[in-house]
Design a binder for these strands. Structure first.
Length: 560
RNA sequence: GAGGCUAUAGUUCAACGGAUAGAAUAAAUCCCUUCUAAGGAUUAGAUGACAGUUCGAUUCUGUCUAGCCUCACCA
């Protein structure tokens, strides 16, 4: 990569100053008038060298090895060194991009690493809400981005199918006396258990007797009591079928579905062993990890009734995750921030149990909540926005606002929702508002896809293939070529920062640049040489948008 | 009480410690005999407060203010 080579050259140049302690930064400047890459090393060295930064910069420039891909180097104002890459290089990149050869640089963890991404994790017997939608959009993008930069990625999903919330739902069903076998369609089933969950929760809070009964049901599930298991199994399957449809709708797939119920027994065993090894300790009838020694919270792994908590089960989950697919180099858990304490503690315990296996490999990728403008979503109050419902609403909006077929509207609706979540960083909470939060114009998926469709339409009308384009670029052409060239680096950066939004924002910038270009410059009616170059740009833009969206888990359409 | 996260235009979001803080949206006006107008152009608006570190701070540090989250038997 050109970037690496420039950094290397800077390094060589700096050697002539003797031993220096400086990080070499090199980025594309925000203003393209400052070149394709810029470094501020000279400014950073002023103190060490006790010299004027401009002088240092000049000297660095003088000592740089000669290269063919750099057209111009300038030393500017306070002491920046700016680099211009040669036009041929950009043209070359565009040509490759138009053939869908992107050559994404390898992620810094190294080539061919095995990375697990654990995401989605909805709980059965509950709705798949817009928060899950944000999670699954993020997780899916992370999977694809990390694959693109040369890793073997294993997407998995950990679904909660035991626990109090399920006991609440089953309690609701038993209380209602409803004939749960009468429900036919998935929608009926889901609505039913959703309602039952809300009722069970309310009973749990208001009614002491109900609370006791729910706790009893919870134990019955753990003990696999035949009295409750058929109902549990049936309703659990309803949820899983429904989740399966959602995964399909948003094009996510998983190599493995883990269930909390799988880890109950093994969790107990591991915790008991950890107790013997002195990693966990007894306290008030429970088995806990005393985090104080490490500046962490103390958390319960086995409660005083002898059941493993979420923490206890997590140890068994990790054991399986780190063995089932061979050795893992990295495990990314896409989970909300309130579980920070939980992960810090369980990661620590894992490290103490088997440092070689777990240390520095577990990573909690925090994605923030989707709240409602009116407050937090809560199934208890029944004011949860369901994922499918949201997509349906957007789909309707698209059909109403634009003419088009149902299938296109479906693709665009899913794209709009996913993109709305992804264009925003993972770390800011979203105050969700259906009119504001899911855009179908402006910086939105339909805008990007529209740009793609526009490119395709032009290309379809072109009689000559753009493969023979030579560089004869005006300013407009060159600017787009430079932008296109940044694509591979943006993808790498997105991986390094666990940040799909970088790709989303890049694609938006590229699209708006292309649309402006399109408006100003006729492509098909241009004189031959220019036309071929413009066609090449059009083709490369289309491919980059399509590929970029694909990395975000978003499907494009060919016509709209 | 302890710890963590957040604070940028009316609103929703951007900006490895870098150069003139970018967009979208809402409003007004203009551009379809011209490659898809789901597009483009023009016009206004912002770094919570106070210090500090730095050649340079939205970004780092400290204090304050406001909001959210977590801190033992839920998941």
């Amino acid at each position: 990569m050109v970037k690496d080579k420039i950094v290397e050259n800077l390094f060589l140049s700096l050697k002539k100053f003797g031993h220096l302690d400086a990080e070499i930064d090199l980025q594309p400047p925000t203003n393209s008038a400052h070149g394709d890459y810029s470094t501020s090393v000279a400014l950073k060295l002023t103190k060490q060298l006790k010299k004027n930064p401009m002088e240092i910069a000049e000297e660095i420039k003088k000592n740089l090895p000669k290269t063919d891909f750099i057209e111009k180097i300038e030393v500017v104002k306070p002491g920046f060194i700016n680099f211009w890459i040669s036009d041929d290089y950009f043209l070359d990149y565009a040509r490759k991009a138009s053939e869908e050869k992107f050559d994404f640089p390898a992620f810094h963890l190294g080539k061919n690493k095995k990375i697990m991404v654990e995401f989605a994790h909805p709980n059965t017997h509950k709705l798949f809400h817009i928060g899950h939608l944000r999670n699954i959009s993020t997780g899916e993008a992370i999977v694809r981005i990390f694959s693109a930069v040369g890793n073997k990625v294993v997407p998995v999903n950990y679904q909660g199918d035991v626990g109090l919330h399920i006991a609440k739902c089953l309690y609701g069903i038993r209380q209602s006396g409803a004939d749960w076998k009468k429900f036919k369609t998935p929608k009926e089933k889901i609505e039913f258990i959703g309602k039952m969950y809300t009722e069970g929760t309310q009973a749990y809070e208001k009614n002491e007797k109900a609370k006791e009964e729910i706790l009893e049901i919870n134990e019955m599930i753990y003990n696999e009591s035949p009295e409750i298991i058929p109902l549990w199994k049936e309703t659990r399957q309803w949820s899983l079928d429904y989740f399966g449809e959602v995964y399909k709708r948003v094009s996510s797939r998983f190599d493995r579905f883990y269930f909390e119920s799988e880890f109950y027994k093994r969790g107990l065993e591991i915790c008991k062993k950890a107790l013997n090894d002195g990693v966990l300790e007894k306290s008030q009838g429970a088995i806990v990890f005393n985090g104080k020694k490490y500046g962490l919270d103390t958390r319960v792994f086995i409660n005083s009734k002898g059941f493993p908590t979420y923490e206890g089960k997590e140890l068994a989950l990790a054991e399986k995750e780190f063995s089932e697919f061979g050795e893992l180099d990295h495990n990314i858990h896409v989970v909300t921030p309130e579980q920070t304490s939980f992960f810090k503690v369980t990661f620590k315990v894992q490290e103490l149990l088997d440092g070689k296996k777990y240390k520095n490999k577990q990573y909690h990728l925090i994605y923030e909540w989707v709240k409602l403008k009116t407050g937090k979503m809560s199934s208890r109050e029944g004011n949860v926005i369901e994922g499918n419902w949201l997509i349906d609403q957007i789909k309707e909006k698209i059909l109403k606002q634009f003419k088009g077929d149902e299938k296109t509207a479906e693709t665009l609706a899913v794209a709009s929702v996913k993109y709305s979540f992804l264009k925003q960083g993972t770390d800011s909470p979203i105050a969700f508002d259906i009119d504001e939060s899911v855009a179908v114009d402006g910086n939105s998926a339909p805008y990007l896809i529209y740009t793609y469709v526009r490119c395709q339409s032009v290309l379809k009308k072109a009689s000559v293939s753009p493969d023979t384009a030579v560089i004869d670029a005006g300013v407009d052409e060159l600017n787009i070529l430079r932008k296109l060239y940044q694509f591979s680096e943006v993808v790498l950066k997105a991986a390094e920062n666990y940040s799909p939004s970088l790709i989303a924002n890049y694609l938006y910038e590229l699209s708006s640049q292309f649309n402006l270009f399109y408006q100003k410059n006729p492509i098909l009616k241009a004189e031959e040489k220019t036309r071929e170059l413009r066609l090449l740009i059009t083709k490369a833009t289309a491919k980059v948008i399509k590929k970029g969206l694909e990395l975000l888990g978003i499907i494009t359409v060919e016509k709209m």
